[in-house]
Design a binder for these strands. Structure first.
Lengths: 118, 118
DNA sequence: CGTATCCATTGACGATCATCAGTTCAATTG
DNA sequence: CAATTGAACTGATGATCGTCAATGGATACG
């Protein structure tokens, strides 16, 4: 992170013209950026992040009825957050009779995680 | 990720009582969750994610005038995204005369990155 | 059957977001 | 000084978000 640089415009600026041409470009293409941003968006709420945390620590499947009382939120709100996570592809669920069990999908966080720690 | 489990209510359910007591708890405390969620929120936009990507790849500092033409967005909009990233503590900027140079703050993404790859 | 239970969905609310056109501010140049 | 330039700020608009009360649907139990 401590690379020095020239804090000079990348190009001499003739008056009446733009200051410089871009010499930097994203390594991450638009599509990757959109995929990772959508994962980040799903994690961009403390409740959802904690939900994912619980589900990850319990590699198995966790009943919704165990998740709801962890938060000071109504059951529909927790259900909504789980839906957001499901639609982002981060978790999935399975019904077993009256209960619904949620679990983290393997590799769902891999791309974002890899980019962040690169 | 492939641990098996008992898909049974954690407790026999006497009619007229809640289905089960929670046996799972978040490892991540509320405050950590809020910090990481706020970082994720700042990254929850493809433009901002690409901005961070560019700034990270160029460990030095990049002029705003180089960033604006990378996107099909107005200059005030790019400036707004940079402000969001700055307020999240992910980037910082330095003025050099007429130009503003942005750079990624070291370790800003560390906590989220660590949690994601844990 | 009827009733209780768990979970999802709906509709509504205020709050926040992404974007732009227009403007302001600071610094450089002539 | 006046004109120009790079970047941030302002205000506005339409979209999305987080939350809840109320409801609906499915399953289990007596």
């Amino acid at each position: 992170m401590a690379v020095d640089l020239e804090l000079a415009p990348k190009q001499k600026r003739p008056v009446g013209q733009p200051c410089c041409e871009p010499v930097v470009y994203p390594d991450v293409e638009r599509h990757e950026a959109e995929r990772m941003a959508s994962i980040a968006k799903a994690l961009a709420d403390p409740v959802r992040l904690q939900l994912v945390d619980v589900l990850r620590k319990h590699a198995g499947k966790v009943c919704v009825c165990e998740l709801v009382p962890l938060f000071d939120l109504s059951q529909p709100t927790v259900s909504h957050h789980l839906k957001v996570l499901r639609q982002a592809g981060i978790v999935d669920s399975e019904r077993q009779g009256l209960w619904a069990y949620y679990f983290v999908k393997p590799d769902a966080l891999e791309e974002l995680s890899g980019w962040l720690s690169s």
